[in-house]
């Protein structure tokens, strides 16, 4: 051992007063270090020592945190929230891999069409990815634990928001990285962001009414149809990617977020119908 737990910390550990993250380090270290175990035994009474060992046992049983979960805890996210974020069903390698592959292909195609005034293909596709990711992160068809989740006392809307944040951070982050691969378009390559937020919040706001499949499908389909019509009417930068269009997207996102908040109890009181599963 190249280091030992400071005596004051060992005393605090014995009293059960050592706080994370020092507590976790001490747990792990004391399990391996005979010298620190001796010190612990000398500064504590037998009853408290038994309680300490019990806690240590429990700690060693505890699930090992993955990279993302550890990072979230380190930046101050509560342990249980970090676990829910990391367990978001869609955030698996297969989904993230598919998104990355799609973005790489789109960036390559966009870069091969440098004559265009705007990276339209990329800007049209990028908002759909977070929408699809959020749609795939809940509902009986996509969440393997859906039936257990829906009867859990944790409010359905809170879990939905936790998962949405996880998917949005991952999705928007990947989109952002893809934007960096289109440097010649400057800030125009980021014109997907507000439409992405507008589509995602609109899809969620319509979900209590239309369900977790139809709502995002309609919103995504509507977005594609809108782009096709806009493209046929105007050859240059498409309407949603102009400054005015960005303003409209921001307004739609804000309105849908407000509607979503008003409908938050609907995610709890009327769980998605099981009719297709019964």
């Amino acid at each position: 051992m190249t280091w030992h737990v400071a005596e004051d910390d060992v005393r605090a550990y014995a009293r059960g007063e050592l706080a994370p993250p020092m507590l976790w380090s001490a747990d792990t270290h004391i399990a391996r270090c005979a010298e620190c175990r001796d010190l612990l035994a000398s500064v504590t009474d037998p009853v408290a020592l038994d309680a300490g060992w019990e806690r240590l046992d429990a700690e060693l049983d505890a699930p090992k945190r993955g990279l993302v979960e550890s990072l979230l805890v380190r930046i101050g996210v509560a342990d249980h929230t970090a676990r829910l974020l990391a367990a978001t069903p869609v955030l698996r390698r297969s989904w993230l891999g598919a998104v990355v592959a799609l973005l790489v292909m789109t960036v390559l195609v966009t870069n091969s069409l440098k004559a265009a005034a705007s990276p339209t293909l990329f800007l049209g596709l990028a908002p759909l990815l977070p929408l699809a990711g959020v749609a795939l992160s809940y509902g009986p068809k996509f969440d393997p634990t859906y039936e257990m989740t829906v009867v859990a006392p944790l409010h359905g809307f809170r879990l939905l928001m936790i998962r949405t944040v996880a998917v949005l951070v991952a999705g928007l982050g990947l989109n952002g990285l893809a934007s960096l691969a289109l440097p010649e378009y400057g800030l125009r390559a980021l014109a997907w962001l507000l439409p992405a937020l507008a589509l995602t919040t609109t899809g969620l706001a319509l979900t209590p009414r239309l369900g977790p499949v139809l709502a995002p499908s309609l919103v995504g389909g509507g977005w594609v149809a809108f782009l096709v019509v806009a493209n046929s009417m105007h050859g240059g930068t498409l309407a949603p990617f102009t400054p005015a269009g960005q303003g409209v997207a921001a307004a739609v996102a804000a309105l849908a977020a407000g509607l979503l908040y008003l409908l938050r109890d609907r995610f709890d009181s009327r769980p998605t119908a099981f009719g297709d599963l019964a």
Binding site: R83, L84, A87, T145, M148, A152, P153, L154
Partner: peptide
């Protein structure tokens, strides 16, 4: 543990 979190054992 995951289900326990859903059951509000924080």
């Amino acid at each position: 543990d995951y289900v326990a979190i859903l059951k509000e054992l924080t």
